[in-house]
Design a protein around this nucleic acid. Structure first.
Length: 558
RNA sequence: UGGGGGAUAGUUUAGCGGUAAAACUCCCGGCUCUGACCCGGGCAUCCUUGGUUCGAAUCCAGGUCCCCCAGCCA
């Protein structure tokens, strides 16, 4: 895992705090945790948190727990629990034996709730959700005390036990902390600690019908596990006073501290679980692992290496200021990683037939090609050359400007690993479309160099007609049309109708037919691609992970 | 108009009283059997106003703008 591009010992305020705690002896062993709620799949925003929590633990010789925050059985599923664990592992992190669930602590949390009641710091409220909302006040006006706030300890205890016993329907009562209904911090206006939820929990089944809220479960779970630095995102900042209040009033075994950082925002991308869930549910994408999704599963299926995601997480930094990261940075990290590892292959996305007129009919020959120009270890392979080949449509222009280096009538180019060819003529169909090129080749340039030392301006990729293998290639574009999806109102109106482009007539070199591995390869001059699970023995399907940088496209665009 | 937090190149970060650093993007140029990679070069009134100081992005005071909070979600 020490393969990150610039994975140097990055510095940020979280690491500074930990270093200071270690130096001052406040903490002996750093213990962090990644606490996902299993109500959806992980996305690249979670990857930032995962890399931070596991990264920091590793750097300081501590440990990081994986803890499922499974306190709301109405939204959580086993499928998500399994997928999340698989994704964290795929990203390259290991929680060892430290796999936990907030539900592991339900009994202890319940006991602490009674403890709070006993100290007169919590009470059972009979108000309905609507009444509670009305009594909570607003951002500028204080709330009003509930009529049930003054119940005796005995009555609270009795009612709370009966809540647990299942005597009341959902929403009938709730256990609340008794703090301050006039606090400027809404979280301190007697927050709910336990609610009645007659629902089957993925792990505890029907053992419970009351469940702790996030606020009551999270900090105490941290304390039970001995978490030293509970790192979360900025929106929990207002919860810290409550987090601390609970830790202070409960006989917990340790005193964890919460620290907040800014969550990741990515241009042209949505990292809201609510929206992502809707995209999947309403069929805007094929599933959580659709290659257009910013989910870990989607990125993986698209061919993005875990190391690229780790590198990305390291480069975006950790701070407290709201920010939106350029999508281009992610692409850069992917390209950098793949450039040095991905085997090179040739594939023609939009084929244009070429007949080499002076090459013998019915004859073929093989030519050696390197698998990676900078890595001899990857070896060589043989590619077939013959009279009929296919080149990329974009590599021919009828009225080519001076800046266009590729094929045009009268121009000579090099076929990668092959010969120099010169275009001598074109064939058009009735519609006037160029459907075939006539060329001649120079036998003396076999292997790619001219004995007379003449140069060509371009080298293009190609495949030989009789040996090429047909393939479907899926090109992905941004899932949203604007850098700030939803900023104009309806986020679903910003979905890009052209986010998926399928090329069904692509031709790839035979070596790719054996690409059954999940390995991402480079199609020379076009980009990085990986076989999609939709591939079958009779139909090859490739996903474009990311294109190569294309300077010509910019020149052409003017 | 309550509470909490934040403002450094187009973007994300560094800088912690000594004269703005890096990466990405973009632009210019070089190299090249991938117009890729790689290699040069360019791109900042440090939100603002005033103060302290020999010296301020850093310290102080006042503004401005942005983000989060009124779930029995997390």
């Amino acid at each position: 895992m020490a393969d990150e591009g610039t994975g140097e010992a990055t510095r940020d305020f979280i690491r500074d705090i930990i270093q200071a705690d270690l130096d001052a002896g406040r903490v002996q062993t750093v213990v962090t945790r990644f606490p996902p709620e299993p109500n959806g799949y992980l996305h690249i925003g979670h990857a930032k948190s995962i890399c931070l929590n596991f990264g920091v633990a590793a750097e300081f010789g501590g440990r990081c727990h994986l803890r499922f925050d499974d306190t709301n059985p109405t939204k959580e599923e086993q499928e998500f629990i399994d997928a999340i664990a698989a994704d964290v592992k795929w990203l390259g992190f290991d929680w060892g034996v430290h796999l936990y669930h907030a539900s592991d602590y339900f009994e202890q949390l319940y006991a602490w709730a009674e403890h709070l009641i006993g100290k007169g710091l919590a009470y059972v409220d009979d108000q309905s959700p609507d009444e509670m909302r009305a009594a909570r006040g607003t951002l500028t006006e204080p709330g009003r005390d509930s009529a049930f706030r003054g119940r005796s300890v005995a009555e609270n205890l009795d009612l709370f036990r009966r809540m647990r016993a299942g005597e009341f329907p959902n929403g009938a009562r709730v256990l609340r902390a008794k703090i301050d209904m006039a606090s400027g911090n809404m979280n301190l206006r007697d927050p709910a600690l336990y609610r009645i939820l007659h629902a089957t929990h993925p792990r505890t089944g029907d053992a419970w019908c009351i469940y702790p809220t996030y606020d009551f479960a999270h900090g105490q779970s941290d304390a039970i596990e001995g978490i030293t630095h509970s790192v979360c995102t900025l929106e929990f900042e207002d919860h810290k006073p409550l987090y601390d209040w609970l830790i202070q009033h409960l006989p917990v075994p340790s005193r964890p501290r919460q620290y907040e950082f800014a969550r990741l925002n990515l241009g042209y991308t949505v990292l809201s679980k609510r929206v992502l869930t809707t995209l999947v549910r309403d069929g805007h994408v094929s599933g959580w692992d659709d290659p257009r999704m910013p989910s870990i599963a989607g990125l993986r299926r698209r061919g993005v290496p875990a190391a690229a995601i780790r590198d990305f997480a390291g480069r975006i930094g950790v701070a407290r200021a709201y920010s939106v990261v350029d999508y281009a940075l992610l692409e850069h990290c992917i390209r950098e990683q793949l450039n040095r590892s991905a085997p090179r292959r040739m594939a023609v996305l939009r084929p244009l037939k070429v007949v080499i007129e002076n090459y013998p009919q019915g004859q073929t020959e093989t030519l050696p090609a390197v698998n990676h120009p900078d890595d001899p270890e990857q070896g060589m392979r043989e590619i077939t050359f013959g009279r009929e080949i296919y080149v990329e449509r974009d590599d021919f222009m009828e009225d080519a400007p001076k800046k266009f280096y590729r094929l045009s009538v009268g121009r000579e180019v090099r076929l990668r690993y092959g010969f120099f060819i010169t275009c001598t003529g074109i064939v058009k169909d009735e519609a006037g479309e160029v459907v075939e090129l006539r060329c001649t080749y120079d036998p003396a340039t076999r292997g790619g160099n001219a004995p007379d030392g003449r140069k060509v301006q371009a080298t293009i990729h190609w495949v030989e007609a009789t040996t090429a293998v047909p393939a479907e290639i899926r090109l992905y574009n941004q899932l949203f049309t604007r850098p700030d999806p939803g900023a104009a109102g309806d986020i679903f109106a910003d979905i890009n109708p052209n986010s998926l482009e399928v090329l069904s007539g692509a031709l790839v070199e035979p070596a790719l037919a054996a690409a059954n591995t999940a390995e991402t390869v480079q199609f020379e001059r076009t980009g990085y691609f990986c076989p999609d699970p939709d591939s079958t023995s009779t139909r090859l399907v490739f996903n474009r992970t990311v294109g190569l940088r294309d300077t010509w496209a910019k020149v052409k665009a003017g």
